[in-house]
Design a protein around this nucleic acid. Structure first.
Length: 645
RNA sequence: GCCGGCGUAGCUCAGGGGUAGAGCAGCUGAUUCGUAAUCAGCAGGCCGCGGGUUCAAAUCCCAUCGCCGGCUCCA
């Protein structure tokens, strides 16, 4: 006799009685005719529509437009891709195939890596599978059955995965002849996959561990409709258009040279000028906040790096050299000399907090494969500071750094997310210190009301950290600012201050950067602004273009006058038509073009044209300089006018 | 560091064993023009670097440096 169970349909809350064992698809089918669900949530857990209900439960349909739906589609697309791969390369072994932020991937163990032609073939086979509208069916198997099944198929990675799980039983999904170990849920049948594209193939270590064999990963993306796919591909094009490596070349900002070496940035005049503006801006912001500017050397004796723990824990990333039979290390961080400055005399509690700031250039031996334009280099300059304070002051210091970061990021128009990284494997210091430090960081974020994620084991070797991920104009994340709490180095260097009680106490140290590495920050800025810098940062603020050569003398006089006022102006004196010169300045993303023809010479002024095409009409060069000054202040939130350079 | 792809003129790229090519940029000349490309001519190359195979290598092979896409790692 069939028993009835009571199903509460969410979000409405309507209750229906159905026979025990009824399919979710049947139940939902009754609730809203004509709509095809992707999957459902049974008591809050995502499940296939083919699941049977066994007891009183809540049930909520997952429609195409719900947040979970795209994940389910992409995960299913990964299965369909794996099916296609197995049908073309029967000897391929399958590993894992999750959905990821912008799509999905699947890892395979194959005799030879995939070529672009392979991807085209696989995509073609996927289309066939989609057109066959194969149902995704689901089975529960015991551990033994599942192991036997995958061992029988020779799928050793699946067997290894099974060994790693503690569940007593496992769900198996199958569409057509393709069987996979998978929690699900999936789309009901392959025909749901309307818009997809395989984007690339690359090597990837099994389980992400470089000691494991390398598998071949295929990346793809999928959407419910072709328009969304097109929009995503357009987004990729836009990202390509903004690529700072491309813009760095086009705008003549910087270069790399294989003769110089990998990961070493060469700043051309315009790039160097932007950097100069950023540096001046930073120095001022730090001085205003009670930081003291210091400068330390690049080479420090290896013995000192041993004392700090860098030699033991960071040696792989360091460069060493020998001078007069003494070993020296090139600094990968700026903290050591700052600590020695602190130690150079006796400190009183009245002196604290002490905030040392350095635009410190460091070298790190990054693995060759990770170098990436300005975003990952081997020599970079940090806007680094070390704050030494009493334990009581720690909380306020961290909070004021958070305010600092947030003010500065506001100026550039970045929003950000926050992460706390805890103690890693390879680290120094006592558990108690790590707990204190982590608690200090957490508490400061709580008090600031900032939400944060926790990244277990991702901290620096000397302490936990708050990492700040910028979100740029295309909503991509970049790590720049970081705040790191350190009880260990003050200990190792025996730093102390004399307290109100006349006794010596240990200060706490905070390492922090705001922009992070100037190189990386510049790279992020270029992409964020698509090369069109706000006026306060633009290396050339005004390009003077004449209608004919006969206005050149006047143009040069205007240029000199503007430069005298601090405007970064240049004259395009080539014997070209106005339209040509405008086009060039436009492509160089210069904020203002100052048009000078006979009319302007007559009127003793210039006719500015903005980068967006609007024309401002005749004005004197002094009026224009004032306009630029105002716009600098406006775009830098009052921080920087024409006097920055 | 690992897997794969790629290095040809300043830039973007063709050429895939038999005399190094195009467009743009550059230079010269003409043109003097009003808001995104004036015309013509000229010049430009150790085909990343080093080995090898071959009568002959930009082209095929090996090694190396660099770049690109990932993995791992990170400011």
């Amino acid at each position: 006799m069939s028993k009835e169970v009571e199903i509460t349909l969410l979000p409405g809350g309507e209750k229906v009685k159905v026979p025990q064992g009824a399919l979710i698809s049947e139940i939902l089918g009754k609730s809203e005719a004509g709509k095809s669900w992707v999957a459902a949530k049974l008591d809050g857990k995502p499940v296939d529509l083919s699941v049977q209900v066994e007891r009183d439960s809540s049930l909520e349909a997952i429609a195409k437009d719900s947040p979970e739906a795209l994940d389910i589609l992409r995960h299913s697309a990964a299965h369909i891709m794996a099916q296609a791969v197995k049908s073309i390369f029967p000897e391929a072994l399958i590993a894992i195939g999750p959905s990821i932020e912008n799509g999905f991937y699947y890892d395979f163990d194959v005799a030879r890596p995939f070529t672009p032609e392979d991807l085209a073939k696989i995509e073609e086979r996927m289309r066939e599978i989609v057109s066959r509208k194969l149902a995704f069916s689901r089975r529960e198997l015991s551990r033994e059955e599942a192991t036997a099944l995958f061992a029988g198929l020779g799928e050793k990675y699946k067997v290894e995965l099974l060994e790693g799980f503690s569940d007593p039983s496992f769900s198996i999904h199958q569409q057509g002849d393709f069987i996979d170990l998978c929690r699900g849920p999936h789309i009901p049948q392959t025909g749901f996959l309307k818009a997809f594209k395989l984007t690339s193939a690359a090597g990837a270590y099994w389980r992400g561990d470089e000691r494991n064999p390398m598998l071949q990963r295929i990346y793809g993306t999928a959407f419910f409709d072709v328009d969304s796919l097109k929009k995503y591909l357009a987004f990729l094009e836009e990202a390509k258009r903004r690529d700072h490596r491309r813009l760095g070349k086009d705008l003549d900002l910087f270069s790399f040279s294989d003769e110089i070496g990998a990961g070493m940035v060469v700043y051309h005049p315009k790039g160097a000028l932007i950097r100069h503006i950023l540096e001046n801006f930073e120095k001022r912001e730090h001085l205003l906040r009670g930081y003291q500017i210091v400068v330390g050397p690049t080479l420090l004796k290896t013995d000192l790096w041993k004392k700090s723990g860098h030699f033991e824990h960071y040696r792989e990333n360091m460069y060493f050299t020998e001078i007069d039979e003494q070993s020296y290390g090139v600094k990968p961080m700026n903290c050591l000399s700052h600590m020695l400055i602190y130690k150079s005399r006796i400190r009183s509690y009245r002196d604290l907090p002490i905030r040392y700031f350095e635009l410190g250039t460091v070298h790190r031996h990054e693995k060759s494969g990770v170098l990436h334009g300005l975003l990952r280099v081997r020599q970079f300059t940090q806007d680094d500071a070390h704050i030494l304070c009493t334990p009581d002051q720690l909380n306020d210091e961290i909070k004021s750094i958070i305010d600092f970061v947030s003010e500065v990021m506001g100026i550039f128009g970045f929003e950000f997310e926050v992460e706390i990284s805890t103690r890693p494997q390879n680290s120094i210091g006592s558990d108690a210190d790590w707990e204190r430090a982590t608690a200090a960081l957490t508490q400061a974020l709580e008090e600031k009301g900032l939400p944060y994620f926790i990244c277990e084991g991702e901290g620096a070797f000397y302490g936990p950290k708050i990492d700040i991920k910028l979100k740029d104009a295309l909503d991509r994340r970049w790590q720049c600012a970081t705040i790191q709490c350190d009880f260990t180095l003050p200990e190792r260097f025996d730093l102390s201050y004399v307290g109100a009680d006349g006794a010596r106490h240990r200060p706490v140290m905070v390492h922090r950067v705001i922009l992070g590495a100037l190189e990386r920050f510049l790279g992020v800025l270029i992409e964020h602004y698509a090369g069109a810098f706000p006026v306060w940062l633009a290396p050339v603020q005004a390009m003077i273009v004449t209608v004919t050569d006969s206005q050149l003398d006047f143009a040069r006089a205007v240029c000199a006058e503007l430069r005298g006022r601090g405007v970064r102006a240049e004259v395009d004196s080539r014997s070209e038509k106005l339209g040509f010169k405008i086009r060039e300045a436009q492509m160089q993303k210069v904020p203002y073009m100052l048009v000078i023809g006979d009319k302007e010479v007559q009127g003793g002024g210039v006719a500015p044209r903005k980068r967006d095409g609007t024309q401002l009409g005749l004005m004197t060069s002094l009026q224009f300089a004032d306009l630029v000054d105002r716009e600098c202040l406006e775009s830098s939130k009052g921080r920087v006018g024409l006097n920055i350079v």
